[in-house]
Amino acid sequence: MISTRGLTRVFTVKKETVEAVRGIDLDVEAGQLVAFLGPNGAGKSTTLRMLTTLLPPTSGTATVAGHDVARDPGGVRARIGYVGQKNSAGENHRVRDELVTQGRCYGLSHREAAGRADELLDLLDLAPLATRTPATLSGGQRRRLDIALGLVHRPALLFLDEPSTGLDPKSRAEIWGHILALRQVYGTTLFLTTHYLEEADTMAERVVIIDGGRIIADGTAGELKNDLAGDHITITTATEQDARAAVRVGGGAAEGVTVRLRVANAAAALPEYLRTLESAGVKALTAETSRPTLDDVFLTLTGRSLTDDDLPA
């Protein structure tokens, strides 16, 4: 559904050259749900804008929904849906009017566009809001309208740029409910960026991590965590001396009375670890195991935490 080779975008800002995206090779099969994850400025949105024909690539190629983004942008546009970071509906326009206009933009007749608009109003629970203007909608309602606008022409591939950013937990859950339903009912391929780690973790079956314009990891959340971060065992001891002794015996790193070490399978390793400490005369007061997060993966790869520099744009 998506295939890029050496996709690159260079910006010139005040005579300085900024390589926003540096040679991305990416293949996405039909029906996948891919989360594109990375700190701000990593090149997520720039990549997305190239894939959706909003920005011509500086070099490299991208084929999206069977058409080349540079040679046949019209062919791409007709086949993809796009839900941008900002709200899609015009402030002066009524909700239903915008949906009808969107259908007309894809070449539907007025009657077809009106029918489709009503379908989408029902699908995304927007029917009572049909005659309202966007300014009178809540954040969650506006986001549902954005998604409705992206679905008017029943695209096989939908791009979503930070679909749930800025929403309260309830609205986020609702938006995700709609997104996952789409996939189940229509088999839509979904490619989305997010900076909510837990979202990428629980929702996406494939996580692509981008940093500094390059893809630095690509796999299922489980694979990435097992391969790149591993589980952790954390124990606390009565004294700092004990903690240091525990590090000598079992490895890991001590911080005060807390010892943390990385293992492949924490639940299985814990009893053996505790026995080893016991026989060395070190007493653990508490012990717990934890699965890594995607942030641990990012930390392992880059030495930085994703949440550190993930300031709002």
Binding site: R77, Y82, G84, N87, S88, A89, G90, E91, Y106, D146
Partner: peptide
């Protein structure tokens, strides 16, 4: 975002 949305259509 509305102009961007229209620009992604044909």
């Amino acid at each position: 975002g509305s102009m961007e949305r229209l620009l992604v259509t044909p």
